[in-house]
Simulated scan of single mutants.
Amino acid sequence: MAADPLSPEETRRYARHLVLKGMGGGGQQALKAARVLVVGAGGIGSPVIAYLAGAGVGRLGIVDHDAVSLSNLQRQVIHTSIGMGKAESAERFVHALNPHVAVTVHAEQLDASNAATILGGYDLVLDGTDNLATRRATAAAAEALRLPLVSGAVSMFDGQVTVFAADGPRFGDLYPEEADDTDLPSCEATGILGPLTGVIGTLMAMEAIKLITGIGEPLIRRVLTYDGKGARFSEFSY
């Protein structure tokens, strides 16, 4: 779907993209025409939403049924109002940052019963949720709709990012069916270093922009891992 021409204000706003070799006007137009769904507006979703909104993605869908709590503010940097729904809070943030981005709020729990309906209106999905049930439902719907899925996860001091695409491995190749949420440490039990979610969420936004614009090599068939304590990135193929 073609986007409308950039307005003079948008041309000034995205000036650093427009002069960037490989991006230019064509890349910015692709961003403006893109419809991107972010599943989860928490620690990982916050930087994803911030950078995609700043970059000029035309439509952002935001899925989250939770409300902002005080303990969220240590890492969920787009939120300020305790008790407000996270999806609505994210919408408010986006509108304040970039009025050229349209936002669709999905203030509901995504599961197998509604995932296909929610994902159906988008070109690309990013998932930074913290439980396997939601991640599996999102991945299954993305696979059925042949939508690329940027997936990120964090735990304590470590994180990882990968991209699932129609011509690549499936979610189940990386996360076997026997894996269960009870096998994974929860953020509430083990803690999470705030900036770690920023590192992983920003990497996910980068992958999304690459997929939308055709720039570079996405993390398809590859997992990029980050060791925050050791300040090391690693990569493995699967």
Rank of each mutant, 00 (worst) to 15 (best):
A165Y: 08
V68D: 09
G120K: 13
D64S: 02
V19I: 13
T129W: 14
V103F: 08
F93Y: 15
G120Q: 13
A96W: 00
T182F: 11
G24N: 10
A53S: 15
N131R: 05
V223Q: 11
S81C: 01
E177I: 05
S46F: 03
T138D: 01
N131S: 11
A107Y: 02
I200N: 12
E235R: 11
L110H: 06
I192M: 05
V199T: 04
H17C: 10
Q28M: 13
T117V: 13
A179D: 12
E88A: 15
A30H: 03
T104N: 15
G230M: 01
R92A: 15
G83P: 03
A67M: 10
A140V: 04
D111C: 06
L20N: 10
S113F: 11
V39R: 12
E108R: 15
L31T: 07
D127K: 05
M23Q: 15
R16N: 09
G128T: 09
A30Y: 01
R170V: 07
V57E: 04
I62Q: 00
R135P: 10
T197I: 01
G24C: 07
V94I: 06
E188H: 07
A142H: 04
G168H: 01
P218Y: 09
H79F: 10
S234M: 07
I215F: 12
P8Y: 09
V68R: 06
V101P: 03
L174C: 10
S237Q: 01
A55G: 13
T182M: 06
M204C: 03
Q109V: 03
K210N: 08
I78L: 07
A205C: 05
V38M: 05
H100R: 07
A141I: 00
N131K: 03
Q76C: 02
L126T: 11
V38H: 10
P176N: 01
T213F: 09
G85H: 09
V150E: 11
D111H: 06
F236M: 02
R35S: 09
V63I: 07
R222F: 04
R232Q: 09
M84I: 03
G45M: 01
D123C: 12
I209A: 12
E188V: 13
A55H: 13
G214W: 10
G121V: 00
V38F: 07
G228C: 08
G83E: 05
V77Y: 11
G194F: 00
Y51W: 12
L132V: 05
I192Q: 12
S7E: 11
D127H: 04
H65C: 09
G40N: 10
S81K: 13
